[in-house]
Amino acid sequence: MGELFLDAGRAIANVAIVGLVLGAGVPAIFALGMRALGIGRPVSADSTDFTGPATATGRALSLVFFATAVAAVLFGFVVIIWGKQLFS
């Protein structure tokens, strides 16, 4: 019985770690992409929207972040389809 709880605790800890890295990390990377798009960009007087296009630096940086986030989602699809062969 004790072993059962120990195993369960280990599994939960693993899930929490992967969850934090991917589940919280990927939205954070996406957020960095959003922020990069706003670098040096003019904002309307009431600061509700941008009034000009994104800068070249902003675009390039955001592309890197967004590509990482998309790659993470694609990795998710790979896990769904071939996960059992890959991880067990």
Partner: peptide
């Protein structure tokens, strides 16, 4: 994103 990561990792843990 949290849901997806946890559901996917849990079925492998």
């Amino acid at each position: 994103a949290a849901s997806a990561a946890i559901i996917l990792s849990s079925s492998h843990a």
